[in-house]
Design a binder for these strands. Structure first.
Lengths: 209, 209
DNA sequence: TTTGGATTATTAACGGTGTTAAGTATATTT
DNA sequence: AAATATACTTAACACCGTTAATAATCCAAA
């Protein structure tokens, strides 16, 4: 039955068209300009057709959020060449900050907006795989540090939560304009890196008894 | 001219009615159910009347966001009785977490949503006073700790940024359902407190050379 | 006291949003 | 060729923030 196969391919093709159009709107006009109607306009279908390929808007946003994680992974391409886990940890944090500030719309979707998580709730595989993988890499690196006595030993989950929260806190406060009014623009990124380095240096146990 | 006075009072009265109605909608039905039309319904005026008392919706949300800071201050009512600044710092962090998790809608408005900050941009007094005051108290307490050699000395701004970011990071990730999928519900709050305590204990210099 | 101007409020409308029910074409199978 | 399943569209629902034009009200001066 080649026909069924072809139909499935066509279905996937249109799904891709929808996601491509969403992406185009997203990167060119920002989050709030991604609307079902605009997507439909771009792919030259009626708005309701979109609903034949996606359950709702949240599901589309979930897919965009996944693309965000892909883009984030690119920032960490060279990260795994770093053998020293403590250096890697530092770089990981700086990359995270860098990614967030350079791609605020993606960051928003990945870590701030509720929409993608709401989509997750209605999906069959309802684990947040992307987040799990990303956090997993942080935990691994942290564990490596502990194994090599570079970081004071402790509960990896607690420490990972602290590190992630710290960088997420900074990036999200920056993105949502909470630092702008309190910290001078030019000092912001340096201060964020100082805070991160301070945390990691405090954890550092190399050269301590 | 008592008439002008009375008119001003009436104006303030309706402004208050609008804010009260917004608040009612906000606490009873959540952020996304605060709409100009619903506010107008509640106070039994037409939607456009609202615009005679507030520039736009952002300005209303800004006022709600201020009420959030008031509510937060209540959490810290007994905080200033604590003489030991390090203990105060701990309590301050726990209160922050507590407030955020118990009042997610307020927290959202105060530290996540862009709307209130956008209102600020169009205002004459365009400093984020509430945020400044709150951060100021953190810095003060931190400075007290350093003065009493309870915390390793360093740049207060950097350390304050780190502490605030850590707790904000945890609360906002929790509120936006990023922890739910990664941490068991019942472990969440304990883990958040552990992370905070770990950070503060790491900073603690009492009993160290 | 009546007229005129300012203030306050309303109606109607613009241009959007996500989403659903019902109907129409198209393509495939019987 | 007829019946059925698939793909798509039209029309509509129920909202949203906001503005322009209009009506009603109130106060002050003539």
């Amino acid at each position: 039955m080649g026909i069924v196969e072809r139909k499935e391919k066509q279905k996937l093709e249109i799904r891709k068209q929808i996601l491509d159009a969403s992406m185009k709107l997203f990167v060119e006009q920002g989050f709030e300009n991604v609307s079902i109607r605009k997507i439909a306009d771009l792919i030259e279908y009626s708005p309701t057709t979109v609903y034949l390929y996606f359950k709702d808007k949240n599901e589309i946003l979930f897919n965009l959020h996944e693309l965000g994680f892909q883009k984030m992974a690119e920032y960490n391409n060279t990260l795994w060449d770093i053998k020293n886990p403590l250096v890697r940890l530092h770089q990981m944090g700086e990359n995270y900050i860098q990614f967030g500030l350079q791609n605020p719309e993606f960051y928003d979707l990945m870590f701030i907006q509720s929409a993608p998580m709401e989509a997750l709730d209605t999906m069959v595989e309802c684990d947040w795989k992307s987040g799990d993988v990303a956090l997993g890499k942080l935990k691994e690196t942290l564990q490596d540090c502990m194994d090599m006595n570079m970081v004071v030993k402790g509960d990896v989950n607690v420490l990972a939560m602290a590190i992630w929260s710290l960088v997420h806190g900074m990036v999200s406060l920056a993105i949502r304009h909470r630092f702008e009014k309190l910290v001078e623009e030019k000092n912001m990124i340096p201060m964020m890196k100082l805070s991160l380095n301070w945390l990691l240096n405090t954890m550092d146990s190399t050269g301590k008894k």
